[in-house]
Amino acid sequence: MPKIATREAYGQALAELGEEIKDIVVLDADLSKSTKTSVFAKKYPERFFNMGIAEQNLMGTAAGFATCGKIPFASTFAVFAAGRAFEQIRNSICYPNLNVKIAATHAGITVGEDGATHQSVEDIALMRSIPHMIVINPADAEEAKQAVRAAAMHKGPVYLRFGRHPVETIFDNNYKFEIGKGVILKEGKDVAIIATGTMVGEALKAAELLSKKGIEAMVVNISTIKPIDKEIIIKAAECGAIVTAEEHNIIGGLGSAVAEVLAEARPTPMKRIGIADEFGQSGKPEELLKLYHLTADDIAKAAEELKKG
């Protein structure tokens, strides 16, 4: 299967939805070619608004559109959306519970050569801490496409997290994405790997590596980080050991969210694979994934260590 970046799927899905849902308007901050909102802009120029390099105004304008019944998708890079415009998202969008979709691309270190300034490793933590906000981090193009539709259909603020770098195909079109629902991609009884976004492909590869060593790993995809699927996490905990994997700081992201569920419902030994509370750097995406220990090998190693106790 070809590798496709989730941002590509976002751009396509948005342009398709524009036909069906006339209330959709799209706003970007001078990055439409990179965020792929340019596909929508070309098809529906009258419903596309370039707000220039001004992310605070981007979010506030989206909020104003939403008060008039529009369904605005506001796009820029994750570091500028969740970071620079955090307080606009909090006070102008989430507090009034307005129907704004924040579709952030270029999340995580696989942004690559642009380096740490552009590599968002904090956005999940920031966005999931705001009341009313839903946080979705799709694993592949198919899930991304369906998540865009689900976000448009949901009434209220949604943060969609997309990547720049092409990722493995996980799902075919028989898959049915649902907000708040995790999915077991592979059954297993010895250890559970709970992964999100770009790391889901690595998690599946890790399960193969473990299988060769006689360890049968369950693999769970959690794309909705908030509200998180508690049921599936508690079920995964039956394996007795959990490894989480995400392209995000280990503080505040999927690993933290899973730990929160387990600590209250079913304390289980776990390890978190993610960015170890540090900034990224320039480099090729694959090299950076190795350097920051975000590969199938790293996940498998963590699972083995957990099993050894």
Binding site: F49, N57, M59, G60, A63, G64, F65, A66, S92
Partner: peptide, 13 residues
């Protein structure tokens, strides 16, 4: 600082 942005969104709509 946030109200004029929202007003812009309303005016654009």
């Amino acid at each position: 600082g946030q109200g004029l942005s929202a007003a812009n969104g309303m005016a654009l709509a």
